[in-house]
């Protein structure tokens, strides 16, 4: 019995860890922080810091049109636009969750990194602090928002035919499994 609880605790922390790592990947601002976050995924792929970043930029950042823009509005609202309806819906959700966002109106609230940050923090208060007050909102966020667009985002990024990057495919696959686990089994591997 005791062992079972311990195992659960390890699994739970893995779940938390994964949400944090994915957040860190998508909010990284330079090659070093990106590489640290990527290494935390423990992928078998060996890649230099520089190449990892230029692949990451080609996929998600720019300056050329990235393969998959990392904002929900791109998938849920009008093509090619940020700061639109779904951005503001996410903003309202954050406000209701008790968050404030110092970079509001500078970084769209529905940037994948910010959304993963919200998700990680919500999980954290449940898992580590045992506070359930926002659990229902987290589920709503997952099912009524994240699941509506992140699969489309992943699909678009994976469809990249020109110079697919193994590292990016790995990140996207991890993101996909994370979402599936969260959706189907609340983070516990099936």
């Amino acid at each position: 019995m005791k062992k079972k609880i311990e195992e659960n605790a390890i699994q739970l922390s893995k779940r938390l860890q994964m949400s944090k790592t994915l957040r860190d990947i998508f909010t990284s601002q330079d090659s070093t922080s990106l590489k640290i976050a990527f290494d935390a995924l423990e992928s078998p792929i060996a890649i230099s810091e520089e190449l990892l970043e230029s692949d990451f930029n080609r996929y998600f950042i720019g300056p050329l049109s990235p393969i998959a823009d990392p904002f929900s509005s791109i998938y849920l609202d009008e093509l090619d636009q940020v700061m639109s309806k779904s951005t503001l819906k996410v903003r309202a959700l954050y406000e209701t969750m008790g968050f404030s966002f110092p970079q509001q109106n500078q970084i769209p609230d529905d940037h994948i990194g910010i959304e993963l940050d919200a998700y990680y923090q919500l999980l954290y208060i449940e898992e580590v602090k045992n506070i359930d007050y926002l659990r229902e909102l987290r589920h709503y966020f997952l099912h009524e928002h994240l699941n509506l667009w992140i699969p489309l985002f992943i699909e678009r990024a994976l469809a990249c035919k020109e110079g697919p990057s193994k590292a990016m495919v790995y990140i996207l696959t991890q993101l996909k499994s994370f979402l599936i686990r969260e959706t189907n089994t609340q983070g516990v591997p099936a």
Binding site: T27, Y94, E95, F99, I131
Partner: peptide, 26 residues
């Protein structure tokens, strides 16, 4: 009402912090 309850629940002091921060004004 929900936000009042949220302030009382201790959520605000429990967020680990990231790009989003706890809205202490609540």
């Amino acid at each position: 009402n929900f936000l009042k309850g949220l302030a009382a629940s201790g959520v605000l002091s429990s967020f680990p912090g990231g790009l989003l921060e706890a809205n202490e004004d609540l």
